[in-house]
Structure formats: structure tokens, C-alpha cells
Amino acid sequence: MSSQPHVTIHQPEVPRNLAALDPVFTVQGLDVFYGDYKAVRDVDLTIGRKEITAMIGPSGCGKSTVLRCFNRMNDLIPGARIDGKILYHDEDLYGDHVDPIEVRRRIGMVFQKPNPFPKSIYDNIAYGPRVNGHKRGDLDSVVERALTQAALWDEVKDKLKASALSLSGGQQQRLCIARAIAVQPEVILMDEPCSALDPIATTKIEDLMQELAKDYTIVIVTHNMQQAARVSDRTAFFTAEVDEAGVRHGRLVEFDETNRIFTNPADKRTEDYITGRFG
């Protein structure tokens, strides 16, 4: 008979105080639609400041969709809209006066497939500050700081003019993280940032996330439960459910401290998923 799957719980060396949840995002009754199709239904969630929140669940459960609401990336998809509310601090993220471009300057994003621009390493990092009206003067130090924070500086400092595409996949992904950091966002959204990487590169990114959580709020979508267990402070478990009309929607099942989700989940579906009985 199969043995119990192993789920490693890795505690950060300096445990952060999770009791005091200082909300950056407050999601209230969120529905997300693509045209007439309701992809995600009725999500309530709070993202804490300078914490790592993981969103896990099987394919099609809407976790990426919810993530893309936080920086209004879904606006770029024709027909996408939301019901319900997302508060960013105390401001309605979808309020009439809100400029999505301004939102994305505060809330950065890292994607599943590393997507460096086909420019030099330097120009990749400098892109965001330049677009956001950064004066030429101290751009060099901005680039150095971002690359240092992304733990990439030592590897690329001698070839800043080389094409970003000459880097390995893992380096490219750290470059994309550095690129996001360079505009000094408050939040970094990561959409399965390691799923295209090998285990060593994955470990580096995970270590980096721990480091970045000292300064940034991080929300990560991952397929990999072990990864969520290793890096996150809180975990939101999503699943896909078929409603009375036979339509699939993504739903949030359980949201709690990662520790509790992986050792003592409140919901049977969460337990089934994390022990590998489903999904």
C-alpha cells in the first residue's frame, strides 16, 4: 500500500509574527467573469503586509485569475470583469478613479515563464524606472540595488550590456524579479514563478522570496504544495466546483496560516488535496 505522502514544513529561520495581520488587500465577495462565464465565485481573503501568501489548488481552480485581479492584469483581457470588492489598503482597487497603470506601478508581477525583454540586462532593469519617469542620474545605482536584492548582481555585474536572453532560465526569472523590484512596488505577485525552472533554480528563487518578504508583500500562485509549505506564511486553498447549473467555478475553500493548512486543515477537501488523494 502506498505510504503517506511527505509534506515538508519549513519554518523561516526568524518566524514572523503572524498574529498581527496588517491587511494590504482585503477581498470581499469576489466574483470574476470572463464574458458571461463566472470563473471564480465568492472569494473572501486578506493578504497581510510583508507576508508571503500562497494560493494553491488544482488546475482551473481560479487561483491565477484571482492573483491577476490584484494588479488589474485581467483588465487586458476583453470581457473580463469582477463583482465584489478588493480593497488595497483602504482604497477600492476597482473604483472609478483608479488608474490601472498606477496600480501596476505599486503592485509588481512575476510570470510563470521568464519574460525578459530582448534587451540588455541593464535595460531590462532600467525599463520600469525609465517608463515611470526616473531621471537619468542615478539609474546605475537603481539597477545595482535591484539586481543585488534579487541575488543576481554578482553573477551579472560584469556583463550588464549583454542580452538578458543569454542568461539561464533561473537567472532570467531572478532578472524578472529584479525588474519588478526596480520600480519599488509594495507588493510582488508571482504566478507560478518556478514551474519552468529546475530544482536548483527553484531553491534559489524560494530563498530569494524569503529574503524579499522582509521588505515586500508577496503573493504566490503555485502548483507545488511543497513549495507553498516551504515558503509561505499563509495559504489559500482553492478548488473548482460544479454548481447547481452544471458550470465549473473556482472557489476558495480554506484560508489560514500555512502551518495549520498543512498539519490540521479544517476542511476535508483541503486535507484530501494536500495528502495527495485528489488533484
Binding site: 494588479n71 497603470i101 501596476r104 508581477m109 510570470f111 519574460n115 515611470n132 524578472c176 519588478a180 520600480v183
Partner: peptide, 12 residues
């Protein structure tokens, strides 16, 4: 992906 990356950095 390049477009998404650029939009995500606050580009018009």
C-alpha cells in the same frame, strides 16, 4: 509574455 511583462511594470 513580453507585453504582459511591460504592462505589469506600469506601462501604458
Amino acid at each position: 509574455g513580453l507585453r504582459e511583462g511591460a504592462y505589469a511594470l506600469g506601462s501604458s
